[in-house]
Design a protein around this nucleic acid. Structure first.
Lengths: 211, 211
DNA sequence: AATAAATAACTGACCAGTCAGTTATTTATT
DNA sequence: AATAAATAACTGACTGGTCAGTTATTTATT
């Protein structure tokens, strides 16, 4: 009549809990956004009670920020390492980075995170400030470095670097966010888009030929 | 002791209520987003009770859709009329439309509405579908027409039209949304951005010179 | 008086965050 | 090696607050 009295109800897993909760949070936040995500769902996916989340994270916003940091940091580290050591042409470098971005948008949940931040950041200042300082600034700096390098080497024409960064990155970002929001509309089809976009960017940046 | 017993508490204003409620809704939605906006606040701004909103709109989502339609429709009508009759060069036309977009983003609440839709549409399918069919499709079609016109007239190089539309519109849209979200970061400064972006677009689209 | 317009008060459902109490694990004692 | 005491991890049940939408009633208009 009491077959389970011997079974363990739970285990202590101090080391693994944070990562598991963050993985669960990523899943739930990606699906529903920040405000609409329920911590009870996060807990269920992570296989813990809601209260356990609060043993490891201070608040919903703190959990979200931890997730973003976890995902963004290694990507930035990687690209910064590349930028420091690269020796080829700037066009090649830019193409490589665009390809990388394409991969990231296709294989990681970055697009849904980006969407969340754009959409909900104004209501959650902690999130907005963290993201502005750690993702927006850093992203601009990195792509900006490529453009500046190209200009310095005479490969790209002198131009407004910040505008160039936006011309490069924003269509990619918004294409991904839009697909994420509306599904696979023919207008947003990524196959043609990425190559065409890279072509656009190259022509927009190219140094004028000598007369 | 009852000085106000003679004063009117309210008036019947069947004709004006919907417009006033929509204006109030625009204000509140722009500030807080869709989910976080409170109908009680909308009611207060409109000077009515919350229940009155339900005399004129079926639901929160219905009110939001009505607002978007009200704002988007005349803009599209205007641009479509222009496209039908325009006779000058395609570059000039495109420049004009970019300028128009710049104005719209600066002087209307379109950016915050766009942000709301991108961010919250997944949680509110009625909004998403309405917006996809009435704004995204129509916007793509209009800008796409300009690009196609330029290609047909030999002013622009043949290219992926949908990608071109995104290269033209997405940086503008996202620049505005980002400023709306993060405030006026130097990286997003609109003064330099719009002219530099127009330049980018023109170079990206320009037909190759004959050899 | 009849009716249309508007409101005030209410309901039901939701959810972040809290906390008293329970269970697993470790450490000390024999 | 057995067990008792102490500690740390975890949970269930609750609280306080929010808010879309509804209902019963009041007020204006004809």
């Amino acid at each position: 009549m009491n077959p389970s009295s011997q079974e363990q109800k739970w285990q202590r897993r101090k080391e693994d809990r944070p990562a598991e909760i963050m993985a669960a949070g990523l899943e739930v936040f990606s699906e529903r956004g920040f405000a609409a995500a329920r911590l009870e769902d996060v807990a269920e996916v992570a296989g813990v009670s809601k209260a356990t989340i609060y043993l490891y994270f201070e608040s919903k916003a703190d959990l979200f920020a931890a997730i973003v940091r976890e995902i963004a940091t290694p990507r930035f580290d990687e690209i910064e390492k590349l930028l420091d050591s690269y020796e080829g042409s700037s066009a090649e470098l830019l193409n490589f980075v665009i390809g990388k971005l394409k991969d990231l948008t296709a294989t990681t949940p970055l697009p849904s995170l980006a969407k969340i931040i754009l959409s909900e950041a104004s209501n959650f200042p902690e999130i907005r400030d963290f993201y502005r300082d750690n993702v927006v600034e850093r992203g601009f700096r990195n792509i900006g470095r490529i453009v500046e390098r190209g200009i310095a080497r005479g490969e790209f024409r002198p131009c407004n670097v910040n505008a160039a960064v936006q011309a490069i990155a924003f269509p990619i970002l918004l294409n991904t966010i839009a697909r994420n929001t509306f599904g696979e509309l023919p207008q947003l089809d990524p196959d043609g888009f990425f190559t065409a976009h890279a072509e656009f960017v190259m022509r927009g940046l190219a140094a004028d030929r000598e007369a």
